[in-house]
Design a protein around this nucleic acid. Structure first.
Lengths: 341, 341
DNA sequence: TATTTTTGTTCAATCGTTGGAACAAATATA
DNA sequence: TATATTTGTTCCAACGATTGAACAAAAATA
């Protein structure tokens, strides 16, 4: 039953008594091929259930029409909606997307990059793993002349287009909000400061505290991987301080959720005893009790800008186009976890 | 600075004064090539920063080493951990994974399939979109002789290997639990019954009610897409019944979350007034208040079985191997939303 | 009618890699 | 020493599609 041998343009050519190249041109709608043979070719192609061999044409044309995407993990509102947007825009231009996940590991990220280069993608859109410090693998992409766009987690030193939000300003907005709600001692459950975005958030947090003349203490700033467990652990740690904070700004929603759990378990009233602000506006933030104030990162917009930037780069591949850093303003979504008034 | 022309085995051959085929054989560790030339080739390859052209070798070998995965949306614990496992196992065998998302839409699913076929994947692992009823596109995969494994959402009629949990039995376990907790009138927020898994869950629910001699009423069974909003809407609807249920079994955690929200808003005591059981054991189930009883689907195990089944199929491609239906027992994770005693 | 232009197709090379056949040189066996 | 075997390499034809050049036939122009 199953047709083991795949039909090729040669088969179509044989049926019609013309050459493969005529078939190829017909399929590609070449102007010099008569409408008669074009329709005939299309007809036979249909009959024989012809599927063009992408490998062959990609090899010949030197273009795979594949775009690689590297993200830490698709398992979040932020990344999955960015991907949805990228997929949407690029598929309109005839590209297919290969999604790979680094699981926040440098080693796996390298494997992702190798896999994508191996697949001969025409371009890569990536958000770096938290763990990544060395940029050698990203340099490899650049060295091969493959267009690369970074978003959210990106390094300036790489000198490639970048799309992200203004982390520094986000922190300022978050802290200003907490201060307005009456917080006087604000802790920060931070990401690792070797990552640029977390460093900027920490800087924004510090500068904002300074601005409002609030205490800046090292014990109130704890860096971590921002997983739920990290949030739990660090929140407990903060509660054990002789002088507890009355507001906590968390650099990630999952960690914030962990923190919230601990506060619930310890019967600490949120937002009145301690107010909480998360980051990322994950879908669960509006669903937990109390609902969680968080920072929206405009994922759809980021996806759109990244996709367009890549298309732009591909179009102007060998020209020397200037770098593009696109920084969006983040937005604070105020919910119950910080609404005292 | 950028080396525009990519190095090929021909370049390596030229440097060493040997033929490209010798280089190819050296790189592929052919037994008849001397260790001397092998090391020399490796050395030069390194120096010239040689990257093998996957397109060319795939074309020649008729094998792309790419595996396609189709899922509704990566944005869930269930699917993302299945993918992680699949990726892990298949990459060990030298395969790279292309993840595509159908977003529960039949049309997008068709696009995914086309994209994967176009990319000449060596096999496909898929979980069908809720919306999908017509199987023509999946037939297309089969017709091309590409190994296909379905998991979770799969159709029996397709006659391909399948990995999933025992939905019928899951419902039975869930209902039995609710009955033991004292529920006498149990509603079911169900998925659409045209999907096999949801149909089976509904059947399991009905049969369990029958077994325990509890009322089976059409108004207590509502089908939907199981999104948060569906859960909210249907829960409100159930609360408006003249005889409210005292237990609700929901076929998806997101819908269960929506239901839980409504119950909270209406100040209905969970689990005492109404007990709630979800499905999927999403990460948030343990995080909401009250924590939610749910059914664990053993995603890692499913991923493992699916990956191995695919490898098996690829290995025995033209042989006539009998079909494999792997059904796992689901496990009820009891939490506060149903723990009355 | 002779010449130019247009149209529709074929020819042949190519993309980079692979692998079986062929072949010469080195080594082993009779 | 003659023959058989092993070893290391080259040769060459693929894989399937593409593309510019070439070419004949048809149509248009002089």
């Amino acid at each position: 039953m199953i047709n083991k041998k795949k039909t090729t343009i040669k088969d179509i050519a044989n049926v019609l008594g013309i050459t493969p190249s005529a078939v190829s041109k017909a399929l590609n709608n070449h102007p010099r091929i008569s409408t008669k043979t074009k329709t005939a070719v299309l007809q036979v192609a249909e009959n024989l259930n012809y599927q063009p061999n992408h490998l062959a044409s990609a090899l010949r044309k030197g273009k795979s029409n594949l775009i690689g995407v590297i993200i830490p993990k698709a398992n979040s509102h932020f990344f999955s909606s960015i991907i949805e947007k990228i997929e949407d825009l690029l598929s309109k231009e005839g590209y297919n997307i290969i999604i790979t996940q680094s699981y926040e590991s440098y080693k796996k990220e390298c494997r992702c990059i190798d896999a994508l280069l191996y697949t001969q993608v025409d371009g890569i859109i990536a958000s770096m793993a938290n763990e990544t410090v060395k940029l050698d693998y990203y340099e490899k992409i650049k060295a091969q002349g493959i267009p690369l766009i970074l978003f959210d987690r990106g390094e300036n030193d790489l000198n490639v287009d970048y799309v992200g939000i203004d982390d520094y300003q986000s922190s300022q907005v978050a802290i200003e909000h907490l201060v307005k709600q009456g917080c006087k001692r604000i802790a920060h459950i931070a990401g690792f400061s070797h990552t640029r975005i977390y460093k900027n958030r920490i800087r924004g947090y510090r500068d904002a505290l300074k601005k409002f003349k609030l205490p800046i203490e090292d014990q109130l700033i704890v860096e971590s991987n921002l997983q739920i467990e990290d949030g739990r652990r660090i929140m407990k740690q903060l509660l054990n301080l002789s002088k507890r904070p009355d507001g906590v700004y968390v650099s990630g929603d999952y960690a914030a959720l962990g923190a919230l759990q601990v506060l619930e378990e310890e019967n600490i009233k949120v937002p009145f005893d301690i107010s909480l602000v998360g980051f990322g506006n994950e879908s669960f933030t509006s669903l937990v009790t109390p609902s969680m104030t968080s920072i929206e990162q405009h994922s759809t917009k980021i996806g759109e800008l990244a996709a367009n930037a890549l298309l732009q780069r591909i179009a102007t591949q060998n020209q020397n186009v200037s770098l593009n850093k696109m920084i969006l303003q983040a937005e604070l979504i105020v919910r119950d976890s910080s609404k005292r008034i």
